[in-house]
Amino acid sequence: MTSVVVVGWLDLLSTYWGPTVVLVYSSLTRALAEALADVLWFVDSSEDEQMDPDDAVKVLEGVAHVVGKLSGDQRNELVDLLGKMVEAEPDPERREFLAGLPEGFGFLDDAA
């Protein structure tokens, strides 16, 4: 498999999960949803030696705060994108993680 040279946080991800492939996305929203899922996956799956647990909680609380400020339509769009990501994900562990994001990270409306 050929590695792709990447910079920034993708380098960090590839350190833990192997070579990272940079994709071209159809929209900015899709790219940001993918990036958010990657960050949450990293934080959620990090060992204490990789990331301080207090820092991990701060990141997760920050995401919950931002998502809480989204409109219902925006949250629905994010949940729809996550559903598409679940369908396309070949890794069973990551697929399960992605499937649990909407409920586990407060992406669903309280009324739903």
Rank of each mutant, 00 (worst) to 15 (best):
V39N: 06
K69T: 11
S46V: 02
L36H: 01
S3D: 15
M1R: 14
S71H: 08
L36A: 10
V22W: 03
K84C: 10
S46K: 01
M1H: 11
D48N: 10
S71Y: 04
M85E: 13
Q74G: 12
P90I: 02
S26T: 06
V24I: 09
G72K: 14
V59E: 00
F42G: 00
L10C: 02
V22S: 12
Q74H: 12
M85F: 11
A88E: 15
M85G: 00
L60C: 05
W17S: 06
V24S: 07
A88K: 15
L78T: 11
V86S: 09
F42L: 13
Y25E: 07
W41R: 04
Q74I: 06
E89R: 04
G72Q: 14
V5L: 13
Q50C: 03
W41E: 02
G104L: 02
S27L: 04
K58Q: 08
G83K: 02
M51W: 03
V63Q: 05
W41P: 01
V86L: 07
D80F: 09
L23F: 09
G83D: 12
L12D: 06
H65D: 15
S45E: 06
G62I: 07
S45G: 14
E93Q: 15
L13D: 06
D110S: 13
L70R: 12
R75G: 01
E34D: 13
G72V: 13
L13I: 05
L101E: 08
W9Y: 13
A31K: 08
A35D: 07
S14M: 03
V43Q: 01
M1F: 12
E96V: 02
R94E: 14
D109H: 10
L28Q: 11
E93R: 15
D48G: 03
A31L: 09
V86W: 11
A112W: 09
G104T: 07
V6W: 02
D54K: 10
D48Y: 00
G68K: 10
D54R: 10
Y16E: 07
P90E: 15
V22I: 11
A99L: 10
D109Q: 14
T20E: 15
S27F: 04
D52T: 03
R30S: 06
S45W: 02
E49I: 00
L98T: 02
V86Y: 12
E77F: 00
V86M: 04
V66E: 08
A37T: 15
T15C: 06
S27A: 04
L82A: 07
Y16N: 03
D48V: 01
A35E: 14
P19Y: 00
G100K: 02
A33H: 01
G8F: 04
D110C: 00
P92I: 05
S27Q: 01
P102D: 09
L28E: 14
D54E: 15
D48P: 04
D110R: 12
L82E: 08
E89A: 03
E77H: 06
A111R: 10
